[in-house]
Write a protein that binds this DNA or RNA. Structure first.
Length: 367
DNA sequence: CACGTGCGGGC
DNA sequence: CCCTGTCGCACGTG
């Protein structure tokens, strides 16, 4: 039976996640605008909004805007501004994920607030049973963690993802196999994952306004315009086709930490001290997960917001941060020599090519 | 393969 | 947005 190959996939998306976590641990916030912020060292209200609850969104506050603008938009509204507490959100996320993975045949967490569930066998490929199961998942998250979520249900990950975005917060949207094309074709093309601001512009210039318009293009033409990978993806995705499996994510491939300096600078001492601090954070993250790494990278964001990366791959994997600091010193000195007239605004450190290790190879262990 | 850049999602 | 932090994908280049 060909129909037996049809899958049933959920995308579970926790609503306005950071802000909802804050609402949950302080019930006073429930009817107020809640704005979770990432503050920087630049003083008073410097920094950006990470997430806002839906009350705040009604006033135009959303992820990415500056904190000072958010405060202007919410002046006199009894709004709550809270610094992001990522460890807390990660704990909440871990508990939710461990609850919902039990509902799946196959499970794939994609971010702190999103996971795919392949429930094909659990619901015998039946969308009526799928709807029942999705309601159970929503009920379990609400009962055990007092959080709402939005769930999209579709025959593949792509359709589940788009469906989940269709009705939120606290939504449940099903797109049955027979409904895929009618659902998809009328949507504006930027609703397709992978079509952002820039791609949308180039598509509009080709008179591609909806996903249906995109589906009318021939594969060969799309490849000419967007390249092999993206062209094939657009061709399939615009027709609701997505064969990628739901599967556990492999180990993280990189760990990075970035920070904004108090003021733009070229001072090598400030830069070096900042890098040292970032190294400590990365070391903590890497060693707690028993990870070694082969590549070390530096990210400089200059005063004009230009991004510059420098990286180096080592002969062998290491967990030793004295080596790292030496490499980063060299990379930063080289950069400052190349760009002697630009000040640095933000600095980041990255390790990649991660490897798991069991034995402690640190020299200090022998001393 | 190594390196640098751009992009995108979305917090 | 006067401007966060973090991660993965893809691509050009050498």
């Amino acid at each position: 039976m060909g129909l037996d190959r049809e899958r049933v996939i959920f995308l579970v998306d926790l609503d306005y996640f950071y802000a909802q976590c804050e609402e949950r641990r302080n019930l006073d916030y429930k009817n107020k605008p809640v704005v979770v912020c990432i503050y920087t060292a630049r003083g008073e209200d410097s920094g950006a909004v990470s997430t806002a609850n839906y009350i705040a969104r009604r006033f135009g506050v959303k992820a990415g805007i500056s904190i000072s603008l958010a405060k202007r938009l919410l002046k006199g509204k009894e709004a709550v501004f809270i610094p992001a507490d990522r460890d807390f959100y990660a704990d909440v996320s871990n508990r939710v994920m461990s609850i919902i993975r039990n509902y799946a045949d196959d499970f794939e967490q994609v971010s702190i607030d999103e996971a795919y569930l392949d429930v094909s066998k659990k619901v015998q490929r039946d969308f009526v049973l799928a709807e029942k199961l999705a309601k159970e998942v929503k009920g379990a998250i609400l009962a055990r963690e007092r959080l709402t979520c939005s769930i999209g249900v579709g025959p593949n990950k792509l359709m589940a993802k788009i469906a989940a975005g269709h009705n939120k917060p606290d939504g449940l949207t099903l797109v049955r196999p027979s409904e895929v094309k009618s659902f998809l074709f009328s949507l504006p093309v930027d609703k397709l994952p992978g079509v952002g601001e820039k791609t949308e512009k180039s598509m509009l210039s080709l008179n591609i306004k909806t996903i249906g318009d995109l589906a009318n293009w021939r594969l060969e033409e799309l490849i000419k315009i967007f390249g092999r990978t993206l062209g094939l993806y657009f061709h399939q995705a615009s027709n609701g086709v997505d064969d990628t499996p739901v599967q556990e994510r492999e180990m993280a491939e990189q760990i990075s930490r970035i920070t904004t300096l108090k003021e733009d600078t070229q001072d090598i001492n400030i830069i070096s001290n900042t890098i040292g601090g970032l190294c400590e954070k990365i070391q903590a993250a890497a060693s707690s997960r028993k990870l070694f790494f082969r590549s070390v990278g530096l990210i400089f964001v200059t005063e004009n917001l230009g991004v510059h990366n420098r990286s180096k791959t080592l002969e062998t994997a290491t967990g030793d941060f004295n080596t790292v600091k030496g490499v980063l010193k060299e990379l930063s000195e080289n950069f400052l020599r190349e760009e002697p007239n630009t000040k640095i605004r933000r600095i980041g450190v990255k390790i990649s090519n991660l490897e798991e290790h069991t034995q402690q190879k640190n020299l200090s262990d022998f001393l």
